[in-house]
Simulated assay, not measured.
Amino acid sequence: MHFSTPRNIMFGRGSVKNIERYLGEKCVIVTGKHTWENVKDLIPIDAPVLFVTRHKWKEPSQKDAEVLAENIREHSPDTIIAVGGGSVIDTAKVAWIIYENPEISWNVLYSYNIPELRKKARFIAIETTSGTGSGVSAAAIILDEEGKKRGVVSGELIPDLAIYDANFVEGMPRDVALYSGMDALSQAIEAYISTVDNIIGDTLALKAIELIYKNLPKALEKEDRAIENVHHGDMLAGMGFANSRLCLGHAAAHSLGGKYKIEHGKIVAIVLPYIIRANEKHTPKVKEVAKLLGMKDLARAIWKLNEELGIPHAVDIKDEDIEMLGEEIANDRLMKYNPRKMSKEDVIKMLRLLREGVLDEI
């Protein structure tokens, strides 16, 4: 068994002030325009700022990464600092690969066989949301030419330094804080119940579940300590799923979110009670999570949490899409880590309940 994590992690309010000791001679900052306006006064360095642009969709695409790689190449940096949420950090990770390997094809990028990085630059990630875990993970999600979500995965993508400074997330709008937090909760639950028994990853995932579930409602009310707890939960969840893997929740979210252009954090939150219900009889870990949180029915508790936070219970899935989505999800790479071996018909049953907004036995 193996556990991968950034060589260096700094966390706690004000921790970004120590970033200078990890910088090279020539840095660039990659971020989003709106994000930069909110956090630029927190960054204690002077470096060129490159903005991630969206050329086709709201989420990062191949074109976005290619353009960013060209912009990075113009500066020839030895340190890339990505400041943002998952979309910014994921785009920066893929652009970093292209910067170091200009001739690389998208088939290779999606092959889980990324060439060795760091021949030109190191990578630092500063998360400005509390939900993707991109700052500590070995993955990046990108939209292909057809708008389908694809994973670029390699241990090479784990940042050299990750910074989780809660001062960077205080200004999040409520919907961003809500859906990024629920994404982190889903990542932690999926990592813990997956078939990969990684004791370190599982331990971190379990603590992340506790921190996020107990603190997210208070964090949405701007309680300082709760905001920091959720941000640290995101950090732990990222390390958890980077090693223990995700399963049905993100397999379903990638297909549904890509098909209907639903924000990732939102679709993950909607499907979370259903994927727990689908797996609860196939692993004792669901009951272990419920016991930790002091409840008997974890799926129903998440359902009620969604209701209290204003998250929908259903997705408007079209009749003509059911078969295709069922097959796509059942054959997703992440399903090999799901506790329950689900057929296309099993997934379709879950999708029909999801469409009706009924949390029944799956």
Results as ranks from 00 to 15, higher is better:
residue 1 M to Q: 02
residue 2 H to M: 06
residue 2 H to A: 06
residue 2 H to N: 04
residue 5 T to E: 10
residue 6 P to R: 05
residue 8 N to W: 00
residue 9 I to A: 11
residue 9 I to G: 08
residue 12 G to A: 11
residue 13 R to F: 03
residue 18 N to P: 03
residue 20 E to I: 08
residue 22 Y to I: 00
residue 24 G to I: 06
residue 25 E to F: 08
residue 25 E to L: 13
residue 26 K to T: 08
residue 26 K to H: 11
residue 27 C to V: 10
residue 27 C to Q: 15
residue 28 V to M: 05
residue 29 I to R: 00
residue 29 I to Q: 02
residue 30 V to R: 03
residue 31 T to F: 02
residue 35 T to R: 13
residue 35 T to D: 13
residue 40 K to D: 05
residue 44 P to I: 13
residue 46 D to H: 11
residue 47 A to V: 01
residue 49 V to C: 05
residue 49 V to A: 03
residue 51 F to L: 05
residue 53 T to I: 01
residue 54 R to Q: 11
residue 57 W to F: 12
residue 60 P to R: 05
residue 64 D to S: 00
residue 65 A to I: 04
residue 69 A to G: 02
residue 72 I to S: 00
residue 74 E to F: 03
residue 74 E to S: 02
residue 80 I to R: 01
residue 84 G to L: 12
residue 91 T to E: 01
residue 94 V to S: 03
residue 95 A to C: 03
residue 99 Y to V: 01
residue 101 N to A: 10
residue 105 S to Y: 01
residue 106 W to S: 05
residue 106 W to N: 05
residue 109 L to D: 11
residue 113 N to K: 14
residue 117 L to D: 04
residue 118 R to P: 03
residue 129 T to R: 15
residue 133 G to L: 06
residue 135 G to C: 05
residue 135 G to N: 04
residue 136 V to A: 04
residue 138 A to M: 08
residue 139 A to H: 06
residue 142 I to V: 09
residue 143 L to F: 12
residue 143 L to K: 15
residue 144 D to S: 10
residue 146 E to D: 11
residue 147 G to Q: 07
residue 149 K to V: 09
residue 150 R to M: 09
residue 150 R to C: 07
residue 153 V to Q: 13
residue 159 P to Q: 03
residue 162 A to L: 00
residue 162 A to E: 09
residue 165 D to G: 08
residue 173 P to Q: 05
residue 177 A to Q: 15
residue 178 L to H: 06
residue 178 L to F: 04
residue 184 A to D: 10
residue 186 S to W: 12
residue 188 A to D: 01
residue 188 A to E: 02
residue 194 S to Q: 09
residue 195 T to E: 14
residue 196 V to S: 12
residue 196 V to C: 12
residue 199 I to S: 14
residue 201 G to L: 06
residue 204 L to V: 07
residue 211 L to I: 09
residue 223 E to S: 04
residue 225 R to S: 13
residue 230 V to T: 11
residue 239 M to L: 14
residue 241 F to S: 04
residue 243 N to M: 04
residue 244 S to P: 07
residue 244 S to T: 07
residue 244 S to C: 06
residue 245 R to F: 13
residue 247 C to D: 14
residue 250 H to K: 09
residue 251 A to R: 10
residue 251 A to H: 10
residue 252 A to M: 15
residue 256 L to P: 08
residue 259 K to R: 15
residue 263 E to N: 08
residue 264 H to D: 02
residue 269 A to I: 06
residue 270 I to F: 04
residue 270 I to G: 01
residue 278 A to S: 06
residue 278 A to M: 11
residue 279 N to I: 11
residue 289 V to R: 00
residue 293 L to M: 12
residue 295 M to E: 07
residue 299 A to G: 02
residue 303 W to V: 05
residue 304 K to A: 14
residue 312 P to H: 10
residue 315 V to A: 08
residue 317 I to H: 07
residue 318 K to L: 07
residue 319 D to N: 04
residue 320 E to T: 10
residue 322 I to T: 01
residue 324 M to A: 15
residue 325 L to W: 14
residue 328 E to Y: 07
residue 330 A to E: 09
residue 336 K to F: 10
residue 336 K to M: 15
residue 339 P to I: 13
residue 340 R to G: 12
residue 342 M to H: 13
residue 345 E to I: 03
residue 346 D to N: 13
residue 351 L to A: 11
residue 351 L to S: 11
residue 352 R to V: 15
residue 353 L to Q: 14
residue 357 G to T: 04
residue 358 V to E: 15
residue 362 I to A: 10
residue 362 I to P: 06
